[in-house]
C-alpha cells in the first residue's frame, strides 16, 4: 500500500496526528520560528474543522494541499526585508517525512540518531548552533573560534556523511524520481 492510498480516507484528526510535526517543521523552514510555525499549523487545522470545510475539500491531493497552505501562510508572514531563500518543489518537501517505502518515521529518526552520533563533536556542535540555537554562520564561527568557511564546510560535510550512509533510501529516492517521469 503506498502512501497515497494510505492517506485517502483519513479523518481530519488523523491528518493532524500524522502531519502536525512535519507541517510545523516546514513552516519553520521558511520563517525560522518554531512557536509561530506551530501557530500557523494550528490555525490551518482550526480553519479546516470549522464549518465542515474539510468535508467539502478534495482529498486526492490533500497532503500537497496542507504543505502548500502552510508555505503560503508562512511566506505571507515573513518580513519583506528578509533574504528570501529558494524553496523547493512541494513534492520534495512531502518526501522528507514519508518516503515511498515501508520506512516509518520512527525508523528514520533512529537512523538519523545513529548518523548524528557518528559525526565528529565539532560537526555536531556546528549543527546544534545552526539548527537549535538559530545562530548565524558568523556567530557560530566566533562562538566556536573557527572560520566561517569551516562552519560551512562542516555543515556540508555532515550532509555528505549522512548522504553516503543513507545510501539505501537515496537509491530508492532516485528510483522514485525515475518512475514518476
Amino acid at each position: 500500500m503506498n502512501s497515497r492510498e494510505r492517506d485517502e480516507g483519513l479523518s481530519l484528526d488523523e491528518w493532524y496526528n500524522r502531519y502536525y510535526t512535519p507541517l510545523v517543521l516546514w513552516a519553520d523552514t521558511i520563517i525560522h520560528d518554531i512557536a509561530k510555525a506551530e501557530d500557523i499549523v494550528q490555525e490551518l487545522f482550526v480553519y479546516l474543522c470549522e464549518k465542515d470545510r474539510y468535508q467539502s475539500l478534495d482529498k486526492i491531493a490533500f497532503k500537497s494541499y496542507l504543505y502548500i497552505s502552510v508555505r503560503n501562510t508562512a511566506l505571507r508572514s515573513l518580513h519583506a526585508c528578509r533574504n528570501i531563500q529558494t524553496l523547493p518543489d512541494i513534492s520534495i518537501v512531502e518526501k522528507v517525512w514519508d518516503e515511498e517505502e515501508e520506512d516509518t518515521y520512527e525508523d528514520l529518526i533512529k537512523q538519523m540518531n545513529e548518523e548524528v552520533e557518528r559525526l565528529s563533536p565539532r560537526s555536531r556542535e556546528v549543527l546544534e548552533c545552526v539548527y537549535l540555537k538559530n545562530m548565524k554562520y558568523a556567530e557560530v564561527a566566533t562562538h566556536l573560534n573557527i572560520s566561517i568557511a569551516t562552519v560551512k564546510t562542516l555543515l556540508v560535510r555532515s550532509l555528505k556523511n549522512l548522504r553516503t550512509r543513507l545510501n539505501k533510501s537515496i537509491l530508492l529516492f532516485f528510483y522514485h524520481l525515475v518512475r514518476v517521469k
Binding site: 502536525y20 512535519p22 510545523v24 518554531i34 512557536a35 506551530e38 499549523v41 549543527l127
Partner: peptide, 27 residues
Amino acid sequence: ERFYLEYLRQRWYFRARLIREKGRRRY
C-alpha cells in the same frame, strides 16, 4: 533536489526537538 531533501531532513531532525505542541492541544 536530492541535496535539498537531505538538507531538510537534517534541519527538521534537529528542529523537531523545539516543538512544544502547545498548538496540538488547543486543536
